[in-house]
Amino acid sequence: MIQALALILTCQLAGEALAHWTGLPVPGPVLGLGLMLILLSASARIAGLVVPVGTGILRHIALLFVPAGVGVVGHLDRLGPQAAVLAAAIVVSTVLAIAAGALAFRLVARLTGSEDGDA
């Protein structure tokens, strides 16, 4: 488990360094995700170590958003009289974006004959 955590943190650290060094507008952990993807594909031994631990973390990924979410409660009054407009913009825009994204995916999947199924 410690080996897996060390590997995950090393990828994150390298990602942070890379993001800072290149000045890319991408957060370090997202670059770390890319590095981990390369490691998993390169070595079955690494995959065997990382997959059980990483899957355990992902099972409760929702928990990790709680601390930041609690901070938001204190800032809700900052929205002030704009709150209703912002709420409307967020709800409508999120519904539209999910619908449009999924419909576009399905349309192109049908056109290219790409089917959902087990690889």
């Binding site: 990828c11 993807l37 998993l40 992902l58």
Partner: peptide, 12 residues
């Protein structure tokens, strides 16, 4: 941060 890195697993 580590959880974002771990998202490589389902992708892989």
């Amino acid at each position: 941060g580590p959880a974002t890195v771990a998202l490589a697993i389902p992708l892989w």
